[in-house]
């Protein structure tokens, strides 16, 4: 069991190392001649106006919230799905109630216009 996670850990280190090494080697091979114009923020030749870190609209936040609700729902549903074959019809019905409540949540968000992209 634990050796599985050791493998995942090693795999994570290796898969971070490989692209890092490639970028490092390419950095050694590549020329380095920076100048102010070259390093300027690219906006198709226009000069940048103001700060780049602009304020975003609340729309993104709403989508992230709806996503969070559904993400947590799936976390509950996956153990249920694993145990599905061992379950009685009653157990299945309980999960269906769970899903239907969340379908209700989706319909509510829909009717309130939270899913519209403006």
């Amino acid at each position: 069991m634990l050796s599985n996670w050791l493998y995942i850990g090693i795999f994570m280190v290796v898969s971070l190392f490989l692209p890092a090494a490639a970028i490092f080697i390419a950095g050694l091979l590549a020329p380095k001649k920076p100048n102010a114009i070259k390093n300027a923020t690219y906006e198709c030749g226009m000069e940048t106006v103001g700060d780049s870190w602009i304020q975003f609209k609340a729309q993104y936040y709403v989508f992230a919230l709806v996503f969070l609700v559904f993400d947590i729902e799936t976390v509950f549903l996956f153990p249920w799905a694993v145990a599905y074959n061992q379950m009685t019809l009653f157990g299945v019905l309980e999960a269906i109630v769970f899903i239907l409540i969340l379908l209700g949540a989706l319909i509510y968000a829909w009717r309130k216009g939270a899913l519209e992209w403006h």
Binding site: A26, A30, P34, N39, Y42
Partner: peptide
Amino acid sequence: FTKEYITPSG
């Protein structure tokens, strides 16, 4: 591999 990296200012 031989292309320059341009790191934007800021």
